[in-house]
Write a protein that binds this DNA or RNA. Structure first.
Lengths: 234, 234
DNA sequence: ACGACTCTCGCACACTGTGCGAGGGGATTT
DNA sequence: AAATCCCCTCGCACAGTGTGCGAGAGTCGT
């Protein structure tokens, strides 16, 4: 009775005397594989090959593939830069944090398929949460509002970046020229003239899609922060 | 040359004279299977069995499994209630929309694994976008700001609901009592005393997790809307 | 009656995660 | 020095996956 949550983080890791391989090594290889071949490209056999070992060897260090993903997942959160709020002030701290988070997520697109699948319980994720909470506390939030502010902010970043990831992976799948993209949109959105017109207009006016997306991200971020600030004053 | 985006929506569907099966039937069965068994529970063979047909029959109506998922994906967006903004005013319209979106997503948790994987190009998704744009236009936004407001709002909903889905599926995996959950948290978050204290406190004070999550959602939503409204006035 | 077209499906292939159990090799005990 | 133990590796096998192929059944227009 009293079942544990099944998560790498809820188990003690293998005591690791002086083994040939290590968890760190495996996680590093996993990240490599994920970054170059994506989530579908990660298989135990390929990972074993990359480590110069049999596939099932990995199961000595890790209970199953999901645990491996949990490990990789948490590693990513460790890459996000979160300045000390006491120096910068909360708004700038959060802003640079949010941009860093976006950048990191776009660099590891496979993260998009994990967010909806497993909760973030690893040390890096928790540390991030902790420092975000401190930042919001310093800003003046109290009690449950701290967590709500925290949730709102990360929700915005997640929600913006994930469709962005989807689009990027979709478009990079085949190299598409401007022309064929317009054709596709015209076919797909033929029943929504307003939307279609807008998309075409934007696509023609804006040559650099990346900066457009970044501006849009900044807009939304500022909006959310404005909202939080307003809530702070009342 | 001139490759098309590979998407169901960019292809003409099969002309369908008077067939035994139909796309609608297949999509319906797919949704059934997804809702009851989740994304991992969906396989072509199981789907075939449910339809009383061979697995490969499905490939007559659909190019591959991803297209099937696109179809199911878009169907979900069709379930979201979006009132006519002219009646309710933009803020209430958006609010009820956001809550409805959340409810629908929680009802089809597998959607969480698709948002980061494929862009929403189907008619229902586009129609949703279209009406949201109309709503924001009616609120007074202009030009690109309409799209930014739109993006910000949906980002918030996505980003809130997806981790929520992750948690729910995680916790429902094994039936966990209060006690073992506390144990797990203590093990996992032992290096973050602030965080731990907060989690335990909340867990003890709040008996009903569902309403807590809903309140938190409403908080963030109000924040975002406040931010948008502020942006509107300047 | 004949061909053409629409639709179904069994088989096969390459690939997946992972349980099992046989071993190798170094450390520890006798 | 020998025996025992335990950490670690890995080949094999199993059940399951998506899907290409090609043979067939059924229906329609001529």
């Amino acid at each position: 009775m009293s079942k544990q949550i099944s998560s790498v983080w809820a188990r003690e890791p293998r005591p690791t005397r002086t083994p040939g391989r290590s968890r760190e090594e495996i996680v590093r290889a996993t990240l490599d594989l994920l970054d170059t071949e994506g989530l579908d490209g990660l298989s135990m056999r390929k990972l074993g090959a990359r480590l110069g070992s049999g596939a099932t060897t990995i199961y000595w260090y890790v209970e199953n593939k999901d645990e491996l993903l949990e490990l990789a997942y948490d590693h990513v959160w460790g890459e996000i830069a979160l300045p000390v709020p006491e120096d910068l002030g909360w708004r700038d701290t959060i802003t640079t944090f949010a941009h860093s988070m976006r950048r990191v997520m776009l660099f590891h697109p496979w993260i998009g398929s994990l967010i909806g699948r497993m909760p973030a319980l690893g040390p890096n994720a928790l540390s991030m949460s902790d420092r975000l909470r401190r930042t919001f506390a310093l800003a003046g939030f109290e009690g449950l509002d701290i967590d709500c502010a925290n949730a709102t902010l990360t929700a915005y970043v997640f929600g913006t970046v994930m469709p962005e990831i989807a689009w990027r992976s979709y478009l990079s799948g085949e190299q598409l020229d401007q022309e064929s993209m317009r054709e596709t949109f015209e076919k797909v959105a033929k029943d929504f003239p307003d939307l279609l017109e807008r998309v075409i207009e934007v696509n023609e006016k804006v040559s650099d899609t990346d900066t457009l997306r970044e501006t849009s991200f900044a807009f939304g971020l500022a909006t959310v922060l404005d909202g939080l600030e307003a809530r702070l004053r009342s």
